[in-house]
Design a protein around this nucleic acid. Structure first.
Length: 827
RNA sequence: GCGGCGGUGGUGGAACGGUAGACACGACGGCCUCAAAAGCCGUUGGGCGCAAGCCCGUGCGGGUUCGAAUCCCGCCCGCCGUACCA
């Protein structure tokens, strides 16, 4: 056995230099050869802040394994890289240190570039992009203008989430439990004019098309919840004294006869007006003011007792003419539905609590089958039971609840009191930010013309340099007077530039399109080129982007497809969400916990191949798993064992036939070649079908263990088995795989087709027959592979173990699974 | 509440109706060595037994099946997402 040492520090740079020199991983946009298939493998682009961490390593090791696997299966693989370079962390760093965000960001990008090369990731560097580069954000602005032209980007004043710490507005998606996603500050509501994308226009398509993509169920579920489609009806209630109609949205039009009151949100514009002149005017004022100053977190607490104040007026229930007292209460939200609800305390828990607190009548109108009255003593009856029917509902009484609902909606529609309707939880995407380090919004404000888009030929609107990055409630850009002051492209008069910048999620909503045609200077992309690659065949990233990035990107693609700029409806045909690598203590890595493992020292000590194999071997790739230094060392030990085999078996002149099965096999040589074919079969299924990277690596370990078990087997068989191990491990340890494969065969492993298992080698002449009595294993025999059911049954019945356990009892039945086992059922 | 995922040795995990615990880590023992490191070879779910072997074991309780970690029903626990969404 070889006693030379596996030294990744000499092997790895050698191959990296070769791949770099030969541009090995670049693909052109020229159509491939006949029969060649294109594949687009993409990992989520990194946000360049500081240095890459261990999560990046796992992400790119995973994507790289897939990319290599697809290439060797004959596909032309697009595997690019870029940077999501705008954003708050760099800007906050600038506020602290005065260093320009561009300087720190580009420093960080350099770290990532270095790391990706040191990690040997097979990237097509000719397509590299960064979102902060004017040659990129020029097209972000161009896309914004296309959205603007179609009314998909618009300005409106609305109650928006305001982070007092970061001094900027936030999208709904960026508010977590009432706190800022970035800094954790308690978010306030402010009435401000802001830019929005009309993502709500796409709610139905975003929901329906989830059925067309191969994404993890939990991610689809999150998106469904977030879109929050509910079907119901819009119903109009007349307030005679105010001469106004108020509409409500309800998912339960079947309970309309059970309405006993009517509630409006404190933010509802008519609340103050309605109370004016009534005895409740003062109380309503106070209540509304209190609600508006309360944090969204405190107000959103569902356990909070119901509060409210009467408005001193009534509305009329259209189905029965009953007057319903009106209230203002903070459990009604202005943002959802119409900002007003009908109170049906018998069938809605919140209404039940409100009615109980205010002594309002609770009238059941839906009853389960065979029950006269539902139990509403301690809570609302909200369950949907089979065959439930309407009661106390005028002409609709005794109807089946589902039929009754439709009948009531039809009745309302006929008389103009309402109609069926659908509501969404999804709101439009608030995209403007009062911050510096982002893509400028390419419009100007002209006194005469209003909002005027910057013409395409004047793009990009470049981000000016400023001295002070500190947010002061308006964008730091507003201080760049010379930049702000401009002329109106329409009338030529004086105008001011928009000083808000875009949410960085805008930048990352289309980057995967730019990769396809990254150097195009006339357009963001050529639709014909994009059509070659899109959609992304396999997207890989963290589950933290399940809603934001993945929903926004889907919206972008649909909107761009509607403009005939794309021919696909979905950006990512398949998605894989990798699990986190936790600290050695089993907790999420964090500086404050002091459990952060940094990749660089690991790579220096063991080499990147060990690190890559390790992060893919700790468990199923979509699951979280803790870091273990010991297991990492174990992986190094395994790669060393493989390397020593290669070193020992490498002939003076490499022989390409080492990669093919030797002839005339018997004994240990046959065992080894069988094991090699078993490993090919196993790794192919694990990587190609099941995404079982950890079991794939285990299979190669088994193959190597087998080689150590038979050190005296025929060298040709050992070379074949070792070359096979190198060929398979190449997906995860590309440098070592290439090194050993070349030393044994003289060939470049990445230019070799993915190996195919020889079916004849997957079955042996004999197998171990498991003999059970009543389902319990009682014996194991060696049986010939082709044995018939009868032969197997006879073998089993004759075995000592079976006979000992039958011990006189009667055989009722014998189940035979050919090639596997015999189960004798006895009584 | 709702939605999604999960519960298997000391640890990470295998087994996708057919031998529970592959593979790895850790631990223990051995070989090599003056010694150590490295490496190599064993043993390693629990209990009883000198042994052959037997019994018990996949969160809990039922069920389907010749056979269940796996499928079905009912619980318990954990994680993730979301939540006064009418």
């Amino acid at each position: 056995m070889s006693d030379a040492r596996y030294d990744p520090a000499t092997i790895e740079p050698k191959w990296q230099a070769l791949w770099e020199r030969e541009h090995t991983w670049e693909v052109s946009n020229d159509p491939g050869a006949e029969g060649e298939r294109n594949a687009y493998i993409l990992e989520m682009l990194p946000y360049p802040s500081g240095e890459p961490h261990i999560g990046h390593l796992k992400n790119y090791a995973l994507g790289d394994a897939i990319a290599h696997y697809r290439r060797r299966n004959g596909q032309r693989v697009l595997h690019p890289m870029g940077y999501d370079a705008f954003g708050l962390p760099a800007e906050n760093h600038a506020i602290r240190t005065g260093e320009h965000p561009r300087t720190s960001t580009e420093g960080s990008i350099a770290e990532f570039q270095k790391a990706f090369r040191r990690w040997g990731i097979s990237i097509d560097w000719s397509r590299e992009i960064s979102s902060h580069d004017p040659s990129y954000y020029r097209w972000t602005q161009w896309i914004f203008l296309r959205f603007f032209e179609r009314g998909l980007a618009y300005r409106k004043e609305a109650a928006v989430n305001w982070c007092p710490h970061d001094q900027t507005v936030l999208a709904n998606e960026q508010v977590i439990d009432g706190h800022c996603e970035r800094c954790g500050a308690l978010v306030e509501l402010r009435q401000l004019e802001q830019w929005f994308f009309k993502i709500t226009d796409y709610a139905d398509r975003l929901l329906d098309d989830l059925d067309t993509i191969h994404w993890p169920e939990h991610v689809k579920a999150m998106q469904r919840n977030w879109i929050g489609r509910s079907a119901g009806a819009q119903v109009r209630f007349r307030c005679e004294s105010a001469q106004t109609d108020y509409e409500v949205f309800t998912t339960r039009p079947d309970t309309l006869f059970g309405a006993t009151f009517f509630v409006m949100a404190p933010e509802h514009p008519d609340v103050i007006k309605l109370a004016a002149g009534t005895e409740h005017e003062q109380a309503v004022h106070e209540y509304v003011n209190r609600s508006l100053t309360e944090s969204s977190e405190a107000r959103g607490d569902a356990d909070k007792p119901k509060t409210g104040v009467p408005l001193g007026r009534t509305v009329t229930n259209p189905v029965n003419g009953e007057p319903l007292p009106m209230y203002v209460a903070d459990y009604v939200l202005m943002e959802y539905g119409t900002g007003a609800v009908m109170g049906v305390p018998a069938h809605d828990q919140r209404d039940w609590e409100f009615a109980t607190a205010f002594g309002l009548p609770i009238r059941p109108v839906v009853a389960p089958a065979d029950v006269d009255d539902p139990d509403i003593e301690t809570q609302a009856f909200t369950a949907h039971t089979p065959d439930e029917r309407l009661i106390n509902s005028g002409q609709f009484s005794d109807m089946d609840a589902v039929a009754g609902r439709d009948a009531i909606v039809a009745w309302l529609t006929e008389r103009g009191f309402g109609h069926g309707s659908v509501n969404y939880r999804l709101r439009d995407w608030l995209l403007s930010r009062q911050r510096y380090w982002g893509c400028p919004i390419p419009v100007v404000h002209c006194e005469g013309c209003g909002i005027v888009p910057v013409p395409d030929d004047q793009l990009p609107v470049e981000l000016p340099d400023v001295r002070d990055y500190k947010p002061r409630g308006r964008s730091p850009l507003a201080a760049a007077e010379e930049w702000v002051a401009t002329t109106c492209p329409r009338c030529g008069g004086p105008a001011r530039r928009e000083t808000d910048t875009m949410d960085t999620f805008v930048d990352s909503s289309w980057y995967y399109l730019r990769y396809c045609d990254a150097r195009n200077e006339r357009a963001p992309w050529d639709p014909a080129v994009v059509a070659q690659w899109m959609p992304v065949d396999q997207y890989i990233g963290g589950v933290e982007h399940a809603i934001l990035h993945l929903l926004y990107s889907r919206f972008f693609v649909k909107a761009l497809a509607d403009m005939d700029l794309l021919s696909v409806q979905e950006p990512f045909a398949a998605l894989f969400t990798q699990g986190m690598i936790l600290g050695p203590d089993g907790h999420k890595m964090s500086k404050s916990r002091g459990n952060v493992i940094s990749p660089q020292p690991i790579v220096d000590r063991y080499g990147i191949d060990t690190a890559r194999c390790y992060v893919l071997s700790i468990g199923p790739a979509d699951q979280d798993a803790p870091w273990s230094e010991d297991s990492l060392a174990g992986m190094y030990r395994f790669l060393s064992r493989l390397w020593r085999l290669g070193d020992e078996l490498a002939p003076a002149t490499p022989d390409p036939s080492a990669a093919t099965t030797p002839d005339h096999l018997e004994g240990d040589a046959l065992t080894l070649v069988r094991k090699a074919n078993w490993a090919i079969d196993k790794v192919t299924a694990d990587v190609g079908v099941r995404w079982g990277f950890h079991t794939a690596i285990s299979a190669v370990i088994e193959l190597v263990n087998e080689l150590y078990r038979y050190p005296d087997a025929d060298p040709a068989a050992r070379r074949f088995a070792t070359a096979t191990a190198a060929s398979l491990i190449f997906l995860f340890a590309p440098h070592l795989g290439a090194e050993i494969y070349e030393r044994l065969t003289g060939e470049r492993v990445w230019e070799q087709p993915w190996p195919t298992a020889d079916q004849a080698m997957l079955v042996a002449d004999t197998f171990e027959l498991v003999c059970q009595v009543n389902g319990k294993v009682r014996d194991r025999l060696t049986a010939p592979t082709g044995a018939t059911r009868d032969e197997l049954e006879a073998l089993a019945l004759a075995s000592d173990g079976v006979k000992a356990h039958l011990n006189g009892s009667q055989v009722v039945k014998v189940v035979v699974v050919p090639g596997k086992l015999v189960n004798v059922v006895a009584r």
